[in-house]
Amino acid sequence: MQRERVYRYFALGFLVLLAVLGLVLPTGARSLMIQIMIFGIFAMGYDVCLGYTAQCSLGHSLFFGSGAYACVLSVMHLKAGLLTALAISVGTGFVLAALLGPICVRLSEAYFVIVTAIIAAVFHLLAMDLVWLTGGDDGLCFSIPSLKLGFGDLSLYKPLANYYFVLFFMALTYFVLARILHAPLGKIFVAIRENPKRALFLGYNVTRYKLIAFVVSGMVAALAGGLYALTLRYCSADYMGFYWSVLPVVWCLIGGQGTLVGSWIGVALMSLFQYYVSAWFTYYLLLFGVLVLIILSVSRKGILGYIASRVR
């Protein structure tokens, strides 16, 4: 249980740090932090799939992108409020994951990665094709309504409001996911990751629990997509692209898979890396590819996983 405590202290410290940083950071750095927080949500959701049930999905961009589109389209066409739009995002993620999950999760490891990648790629092609709905490659710009709270309105056009809005969802996602993963359900996930055959012998329906993890992860990814679209006030078919499927894997590998919050380190490092490197090097993805190979060859435990394994 020592490790769990490391993760928990790290998570709380990180959240407090973010809450303080929001007040002191300049605007440019703050918008970078907002991005990091949204990706942090995405990464936590992905870790439920990769780190807890050892399902390496390469199709999460589908959930991220469709979450973003669900949010944008419901604001544009249904005149939905912000929270409703985000709820629709999460609902879309749930429906897609619940429809596609049963096909994917019973496949063997190699089939699972390939089929999830194919599914995301086909939906990406469709999103590029249905320009009347999705805006294709150019995407859709939209204006967001202000958030109606009991005591007044909150406009996300104010950077500070946007920052704490996203931070709230990050903390919420963390506490919900941490609760789920500390509950017996989470223990079953770990049992399946460590040895699916034995978990089956113990009487657990492995496919069903893998499906649950997949769906939870898809919902969180869709939430992240919705928040990302709200923050940028923009959404394009590119959000379903392959790059967005590879990113979460890299985050989890850097930060530490199976730690839930370790991926935040990966997100922060990768975002800073992208922010600074892509500014002076056009072929940024080249370095990204080299980085992937280096990370794989150094350690697959990740930074937080390494730290936790040293704590005795």
């Binding site: 390496c56 072929y283 080249l286 990204f288 992937v292 794989l296």
Partner: peptide, 23 residues
């Protein structure tokens, strides 16, 4: 022998090849 890991590694190689071709 670890399909998922090889897949990620080859994604890295794929990015490298594409960017070299682009450059």
């Amino acid at each position: 022998g670890h399909p998922a890991v090889t897949m990620i590694a080859t994604v890295g190689i794929s990015f490298i090849l594409q960017q070299i071709a682009l450059a």
